[in-house]
């Protein structure tokens, strides 16, 4: 499998690592300072809404990661360039972890807000199903021992899952209008104050930097795997 990466690109991926780690730590330090100390508590929810600063970025990136997963699978089908297959499976694990984080932090946020750990709300249910879509992709990838075949098969599954997301979203929304518990009002945030925007923005940036860091590390793992494989073949 030829990766079709130039040495310059590999060099950039390797050199960026220490810089990315440092900037992630700096961004999280600023983010924590703003989100825990500097921003005022919400006048309805009090301090509990500070969980938003980690919950919302993880939910965004969970969705973004699936878009990248499906997008690179489509590109893989068009170009057959193995780099897209590597991007897809590098982002899958990260996306699954962020889906898990957004589910757990959302549940912890829900307890003081709604009084219960879980609400069968359309958004939460869709997120839960997204988690299982990621899980299916990763399990399928692991269960096929021929990795060349596995990348072809899991690319197809990623696209099927992506086609299915709007259908799931639509049906879950429809189901939710039937079974909406009357006592629980939806968590709405009509206007976000500027003092909340700053910590949210910094935390989103920090989470993004972290995501890129791990993503580059995974790319390097794949590049080294490829190198090791080729050396063994030559022998």
């Amino acid at each position: 499998m030829n990766l079709r990466l130039t040495n310059k690109q590999i060099n950039i991926i390797e050199k960026a690592n220490p810089f990315l780690i440092v900037s992630t730590i700096v961004a999280f330090t600023f983010g924590l300072y703003f989100s825990l100390l500097q921003s005022p508590p919400d006048y309805i929810q009090g301090d509990s809404m500070r969980i938003m600063y980690i919950h919302v970025p993880s939910a965004w990136f969970a969705l973004m990661a699936y878009t990248i997963l499906a997008g690179s699978s489509v590109l893989w089908f068009i170009t057959r360039n193995p780099i897209f297959s590597i991007i897809a499976r590098s982002i899958a694990q990260i996306g699954m972890i962020f889906t898990l984080i957004s589910l757990v932090t959302g549940s912890i946020w829900g307890k003081p807000t709604w009084g219960v750990w879980w609400v069968w709300d359309a958004r939460l249910t869709s997120m839960l199903l997204l988690f299982f879509l990621y899980l299916a992709y990763i399990f399928l990838w692991q269960s096929i021992t021929n990795k060349d075949l596995a990348s072809k098969i899991s690319a197809a599954l990623a696209i099927v899952g992506f086609v299915n997301i709007p259908i799931i979203k639509f049906s879950v929304d429809w189901w939710n209008t039937l079974h909406q518990p009357a006592t629980i009002s939806k968590l709405s945030s009509p206007s976000i104050d500027i003092s909340m925007m700053v910590p949210l923005f910094i935390m989103t940036l920090a989470t993004f930097l972290f995501l890129v860091t791990v993503f580059f590390i995974r790319l390097r793992i794949e590049i080294l795997d490829n190198k090791i494989l080729r050396i063994r073949e030559v022998k």
Binding site: L32, L36, P41, G46, D47, S48, R50, I51, I54, H55, S58, Q93, I94, I97, L100, I101, V104, T105, I108, W109, K111, P112, F210, T213, V214, I217
Partner: peptide, 23 residues
């Protein structure tokens, strides 16, 4: 944390422990 300490600290703790393990 205005009475919400267990929730906030467990959410932040979960977030950072998970991403550090991932890293």
């Amino acid at each position: 944390m205005g009475g919400y300490a267990p929730f906030i600290w467990s959410a932040y703790g979960f977030f950072f422990i998970t991403i550090i393990i991932l890293f």
